[in-house]
C-alpha cells in the first residue's frame, strides 16, 4: 500500500462519521484532487526493478515476464550484483516516485534499508518470512507452493497415493506440517511426519518412516537438508526402500526425485506486474499462481508406480 495514500484516507472521514455532511463542496473537490494525485503515483511513475543478480537464470525469467507484461518503457532496472549499494542509492535518488520491485532476498534487504516507507513488491526470495516485511508498504509473492497445491498435484499425478511421509524440524516447520496434514485430508492423502532436531537423526527417521508411506515429501527444511551430502544420503536411503521422492526444486532431479513441483517463474513475473498496478488494494502475501512440473518417468517406471497419463499435459520436463 502506498503509505501516503494509506495515511490520507482515514483523515477524510471525521471520527464517528457524523461530520461528513459538514464538508463543503470545495473541500470535497480539494480532497478528491489530493486523492487522485496520490492514487495515481504508482500507475504513472516508472517501476524501479532491483534484481539481486541478473545472471541467475530464474531471476532473469521472472524479470523478462515482468517486462513483457508491464512494458519496457514503464520500468527502469538495476542489477544489484553489479551496481552495488552505491549504484542502488543513485537509482533510488533518481527515482523518487513509484513502486520498487525487488527480485530476490538481497535486493529486498538493501531496498528495505535504503528506501524505508516506499511501496515495494518482493518475489523470488527463499524463506522470505525472515525479512519481517511491513504489510503497509510491502507486497510479497511467496516462493513456495502451498501444501494444498502440492498435495493436489501429487494426487493428480498419482491417483493411488494414500500416504506421504515427511521428515521435518518442528522448530521451523511445525506450522507448515499441521497445515499439510489438514490439506492432505482435503485430497485424501494421509501426511505422516517424523520430527528431527539434528541432521544426524534424519537417517533413523527415514528408516522408520519408509515402511509406512507410499512416497516421501522432501521440503526445504534446513536440518534435513543440512548440506549436499545430507541430500545425497536422503535419496540413497529412499531409493534403497524404493520410495519415490516428491520435492520442490529441480536441483534434486539429478539425485533421483520422482516428481518436482516448483513455482513457475514467468507467472511470478506476471503476478508482480499485477501487484505493482494494484499495490494499494492487494493482499500482503500472495501464493505463486503457477507451478512448474518435472516428472521422472525413469524412476516412476523403475518403482512400478501407476501414474495418471492424462496429467502429462501438466508436465514441463520429462526425465527418461
Amino acid at each position: 500500500m502506498n503509505p501516503l495514500f494509506h495515511k490520507w484516507r482515514p483523515r477524510s472521514r471525521p471520527p464517528g462519521g457524523s461530520g461528513g455532511a459538514a464538508l463543503t463542496p470545495a473541500l470535497v473537490f480539494l480532497a478528491a484532487t489530493v486523492f487522485l494525485a496520490f492514487a495515481a503515483v504508482p500507475r504513472t511513475a516508472k517501476v524501479l526493478v532491483i534484481n539481486s543478480d541478473a545472471s541467475v537464470a530464474k531471476y532473469g525469467e521472472v524479470q523478462d515476464a515482468f517486462r513483457e507484461t508491464i512494458g519496457a518503457d514503464a520500468m527502469t532496472q538495476l542489477d544489484l550484483s553489479k551496481a552495488g549499494e552505491s549504484g542502488l542509492k543513485r537509482a533510488l535518488a533518481a527515482d523518487q516516485a513509484g513502486v520498487i520491485y525487488c527480485i530476490g532476498g538481497n535486493a529486498y534487504q538493501m531496498v528495505a534499508k535504503l528506501a524505508k516507507g516506499r511501496p515495494i513488491v518482493l518475489s523470488t526470495a527463499i524463506n522470505w518470512q525472515r525479512f519481517k516485511t511491513d504489510p503497509r508498504t510491502t507486497r510479497v509473492i511467496a516462493n513456495e507452493l502451498p501444501a494444498v497445491v502440492q498435495l493436489t498435484l501429487f494426487r493428480h499425478f498419482f491417483p493411488k497415493l494414500q500416504r506421504v511421509g515427511t521428515v521435518y524440524n518442528p522448530a521451523i516447520n511445525k506450522q507448515w506440517f499441521e497445515q499439510a496434514v489438514q490439506a492432505g485430508k482435503e485430497v485424501g492423502v494421509e501426511v505422516i511426519g517424523r520430527t528431527v532436531t539434528r541432521s544426524s537423526q534424519v537417517g533413523a527417521a527415514l528408516a522408520e518412516l519408509t515402511s509406512h508411506v507410499d512416497a516421501l515429501w522432501l521440503t526445504p527444511d534446513p536440518v534435513v537438508l543440512e548440506n549436499e551430502a545430507a541430500a545425497q544420503r536422503y535419496f540413497t536411503q529412499a531409493d534403497a526402500a524404493r520410495k519415490p521422492v516428491f520435492t520442490y526444486s529441480s536441483a534434486f532431479t539429478g539425485l533421483g526425485a520422482a516428481l518436482v513441483l516448483a513455482p513457475d517463474m514467468p507467472t511470478i513475473g506476471r503476478q508482480a506486474a499485477g501487484l505493482v498496478q494494484d499495490h494499494a488494494s492487494a493482499q500482503a502475501v500472495s501464493t505463486p499462481a503457477g507451478s512448474e512440473v518435472t516428472l521422472n518417468l525413469k524412476r516412476v517406471q523403475q518403482y512400478g508406480l501407476d501414474y495418471n497419463r492424462e496429467a502429462l499435459d501438466s508436465v514441463n520436463t520429462i526425465i527418461r
Partner: peptide, 22 residues
C-alpha cells in the same frame, strides 16, 4: 487485458482462485 493473469495450466488457475491470488 490488464485484469488477465496467464498461468501455465487449468489446475493452477482453479487453485489460484481458492487461494485468493485471483
Amino acid at each position: 487485458e490488464q485484469n488477465i493473469l496467464p498461468v501455465p495450466k487449468d489446475m493452477d488457475a482453479l487453485m489460484t482462485v481458492d487461494l485468493g491470488a485471483a
